[in-house]
Structure formats: structure tokens, C-alpha cells
Computed example of a mutant assay.
Amino acid sequence: MNNAYVIGHISVKNSEMWAEYRDRVPATLEPWGAELLLRGKLVAVLGGAHVHTDTVVIRFPSLDAVSGWHASAAYQALIPLRQMAADVDLLTFEE
């Protein structure tokens, strides 16, 4: 089974709401065996174009775990907060 990764490219619209969202996400990851690998701010674009200022990388043990997490009631409850707090492009990759 291959690891899967969720990568979020983020432009924060409301820092207080974003902080609340960020604080609540880790509890939604635990049941799925996910690990938060990176929460970072963009330093430089070395090629091409990138519109977002922040990035998050989360490792999951499988694509099924990604699907389960994203569809879970715990994470679905946070999506409205995420949408108010930031513009987010959320992508999944498999190793």
C-alpha cells in the first residue's frame, strides 16, 4: 500500500478564523493515521507562478484514508469555517 499526501495551497482571508480551523484539524486526522508534515509560508517562487502564501502537507497511509478523512463528519464540519477563513486548493497525491 502506498502513502498518499494531501497538499493544501492557502491564501488566508481571516487570520483569526484560520487559526481556529488550524487548531481543530489535527483531531480530525488522528483516526486516519495521518501525519502533519509541513505548515509553511511561501519564501520564494523559483519558477512559474504561485498565487498562495501558505502550504500544508499531510501524509496518510493510503488513498482510502484520505477519502475517509475528507468525507468524515469531523472534517466536513470544518469545511464552512475553512471556506470563510481562506481560499484553499486541496490536492491529493500518491507515492
Rank of each mutant, 00 (worst) to 15 (best):
M1F: 02
N2D: 09
N3C: 05
A4Y: 03
Y5P: 02
I7W: 02
G8V: 11
I10P: 05
V12A: 09
V12K: 02
K13Y: 01
N14C: 06
N14E: 12
N14V: 02
N14L: 02
S15W: 11
E16F: 05
A19V: 03
E20C: 11
E20F: 01
Y21V: 04
R22S: 15
D23S: 14
R24Y: 07
V25R: 01
P26N: 02
A27Y: 03
E35R: 10
L37V: 04
L38Q: 07
L38D: 05
L38P: 12
R39K: 12
R39D: 07
K41Y: 14
L42P: 00
L42F: 11
L42D: 05
G47V: 11
G48N: 13
A49Q: 11
H52V: 00
D54V: 02
V56R: 01
V57F: 09
I58M: 11
I58E: 04
I58P: 00
R59L: 05
F60M: 07
P61C: 14
S62L: 12
S62D: 04
L63F: 13
L63V: 13
A65M: 01
V66Q: 02
G68E: 04
H70W: 14
S72D: 06
A74F: 01
Q76Y: 06
A77S: 15
A77F: 03
I79C: 07
P80T: 12
R82G: 02
Q83Y: 10
Q83E: 15
A85R: 10
A85D: 05
A85F: 10
V88Q: 01
D89V: 14
L90W: 05
L91M: 14
